[in-house]
Design a protein around this nucleic acid. Structure first.
Lengths: 299, 299
DNA sequence: TAAAAATACTCCATAGGTATTTTAT
DNA sequence: ATAAAATACCTATGGAGTATTTTTA
C-alpha cells in the first residue's frame, strides 16, 4: 500500500456512506473532481477495483465494502488518538514513576499515596524505594520520572527542586532521657549507630560529626532506621534520625528524642527530574503538593 | 487530530525505535531536518509533548511511548490492508452472491457447490433461489452479484452472458409411454400441468402452445416441478419439464419422458450481472465453469 | 569543542480548484 | 437530454532537500 494516506481512507469511507461522488465530495469539503482523482488513485494503490461506477449511481464492490469497513476501523483508531492524548495530557493522569530514598519513603509515601489516589484517581503512581545513587542513575536513564532525594545531587542534566528542610534529632535510650544533650564532639564519645554504606543519610549524619575528626572509629551499622532505633532502645548506643521519622520510629521503642544544639544538623529534601523533560510544569505542581507533606506541616 | 497523516505516524515510530533523529531519518530515507520538522508538527497536532529532547540523545515521554504503541498498531492495520486486498483479489475468492431460478437451482446447485467448494476453497459461495423477477431486482440493487436465469431479461444495465440451451421434454403417465408424441396443438387437448404464476418456466411452456391459442382454458398448477411430475405419475395429466430436471424428477415417479417434435421447445439459460461491475472478467470465467454443468454435458 | 537537533531557504510534487468533456441512461 | 463522473489544466500548499545556526554536554 505504498502511497496510501489517511486522506484516501477518509474520502473513501465518505464515498461508501454517500454512494455518490458529488455528495461525498461535499461531505469532505472538496470538489467532485478532487474526490474523483483521489478515488482513482486509491484503487490504483490498492491494485483492485473498489468502486462500481454506474451512470446514475455508484456502488462499492464486495471488496470495496470490506475495504471500507477496515478503513473505518483504522480511522476510528486514529480519531481515538486524540481522546487518548487528551486523557493522558490531563494534569495528574497517566503513569508517574517516582523514586524515594529509604530514609524518606516510609514516612512520606503512605500519606502521599493516599492523598494522590483520592485527589487524582487517573494518576497511576508507581513509587520505588532505593538509595540516591540508584535513583539518580535510573532517572537519568529514563526508568524513573521523578526522584525524592536529599539535595544537592549535582548531576548534570537533572533539575533539582527544593521541597523542604529536615532537621536530624538525637535518639537515646529512655534511661538517658534527662542527661544533657551532647555536642557534636560529645556524640562521638557515645556509641553512634549508623546506616550501612550507600545511604546518603549515613554521610549526612557523619558530616555533622566531622569537625571532631571521625577517624577510623568503628560504628554499629543497621540497614534501616527502624533497626537503629530498636537497637538504641536495647541500650546499645545512640543514633540520629531525620525529623519525619520520629513519629513512626519512636512509637514502639523505649527511646527518648532530643533536639541537638545549634548548628543543628539538617538536610534539604528535593524533587529531581531530567531537565530535558517536557513535563516540568506538572512536576512543579507535584512539588507543591509534596511541600504540604514536609516536616514543617507537623511543627 | 486535524492534519495528522500516516507519514507522521511512520516517522514517529521510526524515531521511537531509533531514539535518534539522524538514524531515524536514515531509516525513513529522508533528511534529518525533514524528520525534525515532521516531528515538531506531530507534537503540534497532538497538542502534547511526545519527545524529550536532550543534546546527546532523545527519548520519548511516557505519553510518547504510549502514543508510539498506538501508532504502531494503526500502521500494522494499514499494512494489513495490503494483504487483505491481495487475498480478496485472488480469482475465485471472497463472497459471491449468486441467485438461481427454481427450475434450475435444484439440478445445478448441488453439483456447482460441490465443484466450487473443492476447486476454490477461498470462494464463499452464497446461492439463493428465487424467481427471475426477484433475482433481477436484487441484482440491480446490489444484493446479488450474479444471477442464473432464462434469457433474455432485457433489463437495462444488466449484462447477459449465454450459457447453454435447454430443451423441454414431455412427461406423461407410464401408461401412455407408447402413445404417439402429441404436437403442440395436441398438448392442449391433454390436461397440461403448469407451475404457478411468476415462474418464467410457466410462460416458456405456454409459449410453446401459444400457436394453438391458449385461450381461457384452466390448467392445474403446482409450485414445483417435483409436484407436477408426481401429479403426472398419479395420472392427473401431463407436463413439460426442462431437460436438466429429468434425471432428478423422474427417478421416483411412475412417468414416461418423451422428446417433443420440432420445433422443440427450449430456452437459453444465461448468467447475468450488472454491466457496471468491474468483476466482469471473473464472472466470464465463472460462466465458463457453468457451461460445463449444462445439459449438453449429459447428452 | 563536538554532536545533534532546530531553523532558514528553496524547490518541486501534488492536492485541490475551475472549466470542460465523456458516458450512460 | 441530462445527470454524474472523468479529464485537463492551473494554482498553491507543504514536504523534503541543502546550508546554517543553536544548544548542551
Amino acid at each position: 500500500m505504498k502511497g496510501l494516506t489517511l486522506r484516501h481512507l477518509r474520502y473513501f469511507t465518505a464515498l461508501a456512506q454517500q454512494g455518490h461522488f458529488g455528495r461525498a465530495a461535499e461531505v469532505c469539503a472538496i470538489s467532485q473532481p478532487a474526490l474523483s482523482v483521489q478515488m482513482k488513485e486509491l484503487e490504483e494503490i490498492a491494485g483492485a477495483p473498489l468502486i462500481e461506477r454506474g451512470a446514475r449511481q455508484i456502488r462499492l464492490t464486495n471488496l470495496g465494502v470490506a475495504f471500507a469497513e477496515r478503513a473505518a476501523g483504522i480511522l476510528r483508531s486514529v480519531d481515538d488518538l486524540d481522546g487518548f492524548v487528551r486523557a493522558a495530557q490531563a494534569p495528574f493522569s497517566g503513569v508517574l514513576r517516582i523514586g524515594v530514598i529509604p530514609t524518606i519513603a516510609p514516612y512520606l509515601l503512605p500519606a502521599l499515596i493516599r492523598h494522590m489516589g483520592q485527589a487524582y484517581p487517573n494518576l497511576d503512581l508507581r513509587p520505588r524505594e532505593a538509595i540516591t545513587q540508584t535513583l539518580i542513575r535510573d532517572l537519568g536513564e529514563g526508568r524513573l520520572d521523578l526522584a525524592i532525594v536529599a539535595l544537592p545531587v549535582s548531576e548534570s542534566g537533572l533539575h533539582e527542586e527544593p521541597l523542604f528542610e529536615e532537621e536530624f534529632v538525637l535518639v537515646r535510650p529512655c534511661a538517658e532521657a534527662n542527661a544533657p544533650v551532647p555536642s557534636a564532639e560529645g556524640l562521638l564519645e557515645m556509641r553512634l549507630l549508623l546506616l550501612e554504606e550507600g545511604h546518603c543519610f549515613r554521610d549526612q549524619a557523619l558530616a555533622f560529626c566531622t569537625p571532631a575528626r571521625v577517624g577510623s572509629r568503628e560504628f554499629m551499622e543497621g540497614s534501616s532506621l527502624t533497626t537503629l532505633v530498636q537497637m538504641v532502645g536495647a541500650g546499645i548506643g545512640v543514633t540520629l534520625i531525620p525529623e519525619m521519622a520520629v513519629a513512626t520510629e519512636t512509637r514502639l521503642a523505649d527511646v527518648a528524642v532530643a533536639r541537638l544544639p545549634a548548628p543543628r544538623p539538617k538536610r534539604m529534601i528535593g524533587l529531581v527530574w531530567r531537565n530535558s523533560s517536557p513535563m516540568a510544569g506538572q512536576y512543579r505542581q507535584i512539588a507543591e503538593v509534596l511541600r504540604g507533606f514536609g516536616p514543617s506541616a507537623g511543627r
